[in-house]
Write a protein that binds this DNA or RNA. Structure first.
Lengths: 224, 224
DNA sequence: CGTCGTCTTGATCTTTCTCAACCTGTGTGG
DNA sequence: CCACACAGGTTGAGAAAGATCAAGACGACG
């Protein structure tokens, strides 16, 4: 079902799942090109055009997201994992990828990756794209070092209402929103009350309506 | 590149990406079976055998993980997204899936999903499996409501050292670990010092060695 | 119309963040 | 080869944000 990733990294295309899928060894050629990166370097940066998909053969890479001009760590990727798959369904990278231990990564341009995947519309491709799409839209869980409760709530409301117009998060229970934002329901309640008093939102016991995006943006930026 | 998900949900297999990939309309049949679920119900529960892969056609589903016998919300899935893809590479579900608004979901047994994806070893399948594997091993970001800083650190050390033996998190900088655990570096430092004093770990400025898993488990469970 | 679950509000206490100083291992240049 | 500077980490004291506990209000539902 799941082969364990080699502890010391993948050293050859013959032992690499990507290489094998490209039938390296039976005359195939792998579209991915090996590169070495030192610790501290970036493979790509959030919001850059997503032009290359990466695969980690050795080493560790940190996926981070900028919050208040500081890097917040979302997860660690290591041997045998992809980076930048969002290229499949999104024009820009959604994270920054920072190498934290000398790494071998192979990269492939989006259109070559696309060709490598085979014809569009096949089940496996569709499943892959849907799976990636889900992670792209995903809002990572927030925690206090990401800013005060007020700021986290304001930011979350803004991202939630980017697509849907003003009627935020229909039907998600307060306790669940609170959990997602890394706070207890009481704190969320107080913060919403404050935002309502300042006129940024209108709140009932089960709905949150964004009235003033500008005010929310200010709240998301300002301290306290 | 990415078609926007229909706001009111997918109502027919003809307009469903899964149905289309199964060539419904050209004589194909979709292996997924529609089901309706009311708000509050569970599609599956964490650690159950992962036997069914789900696809959301309408409604919203919460993915949660148990921490200290409370549900911590990891993310929200809605129309057009998969649930339980971990079935591809993992014997059990890694989250619980709770329906929060009346939903239409279609489910398919793992082996049928497997067959639907097409022959193993094709690039798209390999990419899908690697992508899923990455999310399965991923440690979700922790936040204060998940317990005190001490408990979060203890839990994280335990999960990190499950596979690798005792030499935790080689080479990840303190500030990055702190960010991942939703605290500032100073707090992490203090917590590690406490754990070191109690003999659970040995700490240098750039390594953490787990000495006493039992002690860590106690710390992960106990308050303060 | 009454009960229950969920959310809100209030008062208090704890945790953890902040700011600052200090330490230590690493890398640099003389 | 050693001294020095620097980044990253640790430790300490104080302040503030948020957690907890408890009580009350609102809305949903039978």
């Amino acid at each position: 079902m799941s082969q364990a990733p080699p502890p010391d990294g993948i050293t050859s295309c013959f032992s690499c799942p990507i290489g094998q899928a490209a039938q390296v060894g039976q005359g195939g050629r792998c579209a991915f090109i090996d590169r070495h990166r030192e610790a501290g370097g970036y493979l790509y940066v959030e919001e850059e055009p997503a032009e290359v998909v990466w695969f980690v053969k050795r080493g560790q890479v940190l996926l981070t997201r900028a919050v208040d001009s500081t890097e917040v760590v979302r997860t660690v990727r290591s041997t045998g994992e992809f980076l930048g798959l969002e290229a499949l369904v999104h024009p820009t990278y959604i994270d920054s990828a920072r190498v934290i231990s000398a790494a071998t990564v192979c990269g492939v341009a989006r259109q070559h990756f696309d060709a490598w995947l085979g014809p569009p519309g096949t089940p496996a491709r569709v499943a892959l794209e849907q799976a990636v799409r889900a992670t792209v839209h995903e809002v990572p869980r927030a925690a206090p070092p990401d800013g005060s409760a007020l700021r986290r709530v304001a930011r979350w409301l803004l991202t939630q209402t980017e697509a849907e117009k003003e009627k935020a998060s229909a039907g998600v229970a307060r306790r669940d929103i609170a959990s997602l934002l890394g706070m207890v329901p009481e704190t969320l309640s107080r913060v919403l009350a404050r935002l309502a008093r300042s006129g940024a939102v209108e709140v009932t016991r089960r709905t949150i309506k964004v009235c003033d995006r500008a005010a929310l943006e200010t709240a998301a930026r300002r301290a306290a």
